[in-house]
């Protein structure tokens, strides 16, 4: 029993240290008005309680899914869908954009923003999770509460629509 407990603690320690930064960046970026400490505390406390149900290959997605739920639930006085729409209305970088060492010029960023804002809330959500949180496969499915296959199909379609909106800006 003690050995099981030690293994459990070791797994949680690893999960916490491997994903704390990504979950924190997600909450800061997507829910700047949420109580960061409260969301982080609740998310990882839930993970500790349900550790045996978290698949190793989907830990980050699971945590971000819980953090997303916790943050949405903490936005009181508004419908959940409204809160979600608000959270995913615009491109939200994870951390200061100037620190990301990218060479995308401002005009391109503007085109990206316009194309992004023309997407549905669902498309914006999955694009954000995949592009900025780096979620793929099982992680992406866990974050969205769907199977990895469904998440892959949704991402594929969202990317197609994103691309269409992006390219349309160059047409008269």
């Amino acid at each position: 029993m003690a050995r099981h407990s030690a293994r459990r603690e070791a797994r949680f320690d690893g999960l916490f240290r491997a994903h704390y930064s990504s979950v924190e960046a997600f909450v800061r970026g997507q829910f700047p008005h949420a109580d960061l400490a409260e969301v982080m505390s609740s998310t990882f406390a839930t993970a500790w309680r349900r550790l045996d149900d978290i698949r190793v290959e989907a830990e980050r997605g699971w945590l971000i899914g819980v953090a997303n739920n916790t943050a949405l639930n903490s936005i009181r006085g508004r419908r959940r869908r409204d809160a979600r729409d608000e959270a995913y209305r615009t491109i939200t970088f994870r951390g200061p954009a100037e620190l990301h060492d990218h060479d995308v010029p401002p005009e391109t960023l503007e085109h990206l923003s316009v194309a992004f804002e023309r997407l549905s809330a669902s498309d914006r959500e999955i694009i954000q999770l995949a592009a900025f949180d780096g979620l793929t496969g099982a992680d992406l499915g866990a974050a969205l509460g769907v199977s990895p296959g469904t998440a892959a199909v949704r991402l594929h379609r969202a990317r197609q629509r994103f691309s269409e909106h992006y390219r349309k800006q160059d047409q008269p």
Binding site: S21, S22, A25, F26, I91, F93, R94, G95, A97, L99, H100, D101, H102, V104, P105, E107, T108, H111, L112, A115, F116, I127, A130, A131, F132, D133, G134, R159, F162, S163, Y166, R167, K168, Q169, D170
Partner: peptide, 22 residues
């Protein structure tokens, strides 16, 4: 600078800006 038909995929562009801190 403009989203022409030969421009990179916008999703890939966004992904290229992902913070390594995560």
């Amino acid at each position: 600078n403009s989203p022409t038909s030969t421009a990179p995929d916008p999703f890939e562009l966004l992904s290229s800006m992902r913070s390594p801190d995560i």
